[in-house]
């Protein structure tokens, strides 16, 4: 009981601390937005950076920062923050519209590989229930099942409802835990990055003397496969792969 109390206290304290930083972030956001509307785009970017310094984020923060970058002709950064905004609020029309406008400025156009059926199913599931919620739901149901099993083993009580509850909890816990762990270990949305420089050279090996396999340009969203030191192995939307240095990419 004492342990549970300590955990609840810690969670409550953390929530209170983050809430305490919200007014400061909001003030920074308001100041940055005023600068943005005045056309001081570089200053606005710095102010938005300040607003997100305490680990807080919001779709509006990312969106406005993307607009500032767009006005500065920084297409890569603009795509990066619009994609972040979209991840927080995927249904917002303004975000989607602006993303399509900015994407039309991207030089590279690759055909996209179709996702496998299981990946599409995972994406559908994750769009309905976030991965962490899947896991937590599975754990809670699992604990309920354990409690029901204790009742059953100790013969505290037994009837049809308890038996049905055990079955339902078992199946539900199994499903949520399976879905949660599979989507955690094999995420349907791989790590993505945006090209932030005018041109990024892809090499066949992590070596600048290696043959050049492709040249990609600012704003293109690529998938990160692995990293090796300063080198990063990425995949283009059409499935082509290559090594490049990580300093020209921004992780979404």
């Amino acid at each position: 009981m004492k342990i549970l109390s300590c955990i609840l206290l810690l969670v409550f304290s953390a929530a209170l601390m983050s809430r305490a930083q919200v007014p400061e972030a909001t003030q920074a956001f308001d100041r940055a937005t005023r600068l943005l509307n005045q056309g001081a785009y570089s200053e606005a970017v710095l102010a938005y950076d300040e607003a997100s310094r305490d680990g807080l984020e919001s779709a509006a923060l990312y969106y406005n920062r993307a607009i500032a970058h767009y006005r500065l002709e920084q297409i890569g950064e603009s795509v990066l923050y619009l994609r972040r905004a979209e991840s927080l609020d995927p249904d917002d029309l303004k975000i989607r519209h602006s993303l399509s406008i900015v994407s039309s400025r991207i030089e590279d156009h690759f055909s996209e590989l179709p996702a496998p059926i299981w990946t599409r199913l995972q994406r559908l599931l994750v769009s309905l229930i976030p991965v962490n919620l899947l896991l937590i739901s599975g754990i809670v149901l699992y604990l309920v099942l354990v409690a029901l099993l204790v009742v059953y083993i100790k013969r505290i009580a037994e009837n049809d409802w308890l038996r049905r509850a055990r079955y339902v909890c078992g199946i539900a816990a199994g499903f949520f835990l399976f879905a949660g762990f599979t989507t955690s270990f094999w995420p349907p949305f791989p790590d993505e990055s945006v090209v932030l420089v005018d041109e990024l050279v892809l090499y066949e090996r992590p070596d600048e003397q290696a043959s050049v396999s492709e040249r990609i340009h600012e704003g293109l969203v690529v998938t990160t496969i692995t990293k090796a030191g300063d080198w990063i192995f990425i995949q283009l939307p059409n499935g082509a792969q290559g090594w490049t240095t990580s300093d020209g990419l921004g992780a979404i």
Binding site: S18, V22, A25, T26, F29, D30, T33, L36, N37, A51, S52, G55, L56, E57, S58, A59, A60, L61, Y63, N64, I67, L88, D89, K94
Partner: peptide, 11 residues
């Protein structure tokens, strides 16, 4: 741009 910061969340 948005005029309101909207709902803040932890990263």
């Amino acid at each position: 741009p948005f005029s309101d910061a909207g709902e803040w969340s932890n990263k």
